[in-house]
Every structure is written in structure tokens, then in C-alpha cells.
Lab assay of single mutants.
Amino acid sequence: QLWTVEEQKKLEQLLIKYPPEEVESRRWQKIADELGNRTAKQVASRVQKYFIKLTKAGIPVPGR
């Protein structure tokens, strides 16, 4: 299922709330739990694509 604008905005906020961890899967699980309707795997996939998009555009990656 496609990500809504609201989900993307919340994801961006949660990336700041939950900074990078030694075991990133824990971070994705915390974010997924707060989103409520996404799995950690879906979050990880979305974040990877989002970070690539930001990097290509020369925009700083949130939480890094």
C-alpha cells in the first residue's frame, strides 16, 4: 500500500525522535510501532528510498 502524505510527515518526525542506533532494526521497529500501520521492514524500505532521494537532491538526512 502506498504511503500517505501524513505517514511520510510522521515518519520524518520519528526519524528525528529516534536517532540512529547500533542495531538499526530496533529503530525501525520503534518507528513502526508509533506509526501503527506499518511493519519495521516497510519502514526500513521507505527510509532507504527516502534517504537516497534526499542525498541525490543534496538535502541533509534527518537524524544524522
Score class of each variant (00 low, 15 high):
D33Y: 07
K10T: 07
R26S: 14
V43M: 02
R27V: 01
T55Q: 14
L35V: 02
A40G: 09
L14P: 00
L54G: 15
E21C: 06
K53S: 13
V23T: 14
I31A: 01
I59K: 15
S25A: 13
E34D: 05
E34L: 05
L35D: 00
R38W: 06
A32D: 00
G58K: 09
A40R: 04
R46S: 08
L54H: 15
A32R: 00
K56I: 03
D33A: 08
R64K: 14
A32Q: 02
Q8L: 10
R64G: 14
R27G: 02
E21L: 03
W28D: 00
P19T: 04
V47W: 03
L11C: 01
W28M: 12
V43Y: 00
K56A: 11
A57L: 11
A40W: 13
G63N: 10
R46G: 11
I31N: 00
I59D: 15
I31M: 05
V47E: 02
P20R: 08
Q13L: 12
A57Q: 12
E12M: 04
K10W: 03
A57E: 13
Q29T: 10
Q8E: 11
K53C: 06
P19S: 06
A32E: 00
E21K: 02
T39I: 02
F51V: 10
E22T: 12
V23A: 08
R26E: 13
G63L: 03
E12W: 02
Q8F: 03
S25T: 11
K41S: 13
P20G: 08
K9S: 08
T55W: 05
K9V: 07
Q8N: 12
P19C: 05
L15A: 02
K49T: 13
I31R: 01
K30M: 05
L11S: 02
K56T: 09
E22F: 05
K30V: 04
P60W: 05
F51W: 11
P19G: 13
E21Q: 06
P20Y: 09
V47H: 03
K56L: 05
E22A: 10
I16V: 15
P19I: 03
Q48D: 10
T55F: 03
K53D: 12
R26P: 04
K53G: 14
Y50V: 13
K56G: 09
Q29I: 06
W28V: 02
F51Y: 09
E21R: 02
K49L: 08
P20L: 05
P19D: 04
R64T: 11
K56D: 14
P62E: 10
L11R: 00
R64E: 15
P19L: 08
L14Q: 02
Q8M: 15
I59V: 14
Q42L: 02
A32P: 00
Y18F: 09
E22M: 14
Q42G: 04
A32S: 08
I31V: 07
K30L: 05
K49Y: 05
D33E: 09
P60S: 11
L35Y: 03
R27A: 03
Q13Y: 08
Y50I: 11
K30I: 04
Q29K: 06
G58L: 10
P60G: 12
K9A: 10
R46T: 09
Q42D: 15
K10P: 00
I52H: 15
I52C: 14
I16K: 13
A57C: 06
E22D: 14
V23F: 06
N37H: 11
A44H: 12
P20A: 12
K41M: 10
A32I: 01
P20M: 11
A40P: 13
Q13H: 06
L54K: 15
L54N: 15
K53A: 09
L11F: 04
K10S: 10
G58F: 04
T4I: 02
T39D: 15
K41E: 15
R64Q: 15
S25N: 10
K53F: 05
K30E: 02
E34I: 04
N37I: 09
I16T: 11
D33Q: 08
E21T: 08
I31G: 02
K49W: 10
W28S: 01
E12H: 06
A44C: 11
A44N: 04
T39L: 02
A44W: 07
T39E: 03
R38P: 02
V61S: 13
Q42T: 03
Q13I: 07
Q29D: 12
E34Q: 06
E22H: 10
G63Q: 04
V23Y: 08
K30S: 05
K30D: 02
K53M: 06
R46Y: 14
D33W: 04
S45F: 05
R46M: 12
P62H: 12
E24K: 05
I52V: 15
R38M: 08
P20F: 06
V43Q: 00
K56F: 01
P20I: 13
K17P: 00
G36H: 11
Q8I: 09
A44Q: 13
K49D: 13
Y50L: 09
E24G: 04
Q29W: 05
R64D: 15
R46N: 09
V47G: 03
L35T: 00
V47N: 01
P62Q: 14
E22W: 04
I31S: 00
K56S: 11
E24W: 03
L14I: 00
R64S: 12
Y18P: 00
K30H: 03
E24L: 07
G36N: 08
G36K: 07
R27D: 02
T39C: 04
E34K: 09
A32G: 03
E12T: 06
G36M: 05
Q29Y: 04
V43H: 00
V47M: 06
I59Y: 08
L11T: 01
P19V: 06
G36W: 05
P62G: 11
T39V: 02
I52G: 15
I59A: 14
T55Y: 05
N37P: 05
A32V: 01
L54Y: 08
E21P: 02
L35N: 00
R26T: 13
R64H: 11
G36D: 14
S25M: 14
I16S: 09
K41A: 13
R46Q: 12
W3G: 03
T39R: 01
K41T: 13
V43C: 02
Q8K: 06
K10G: 03
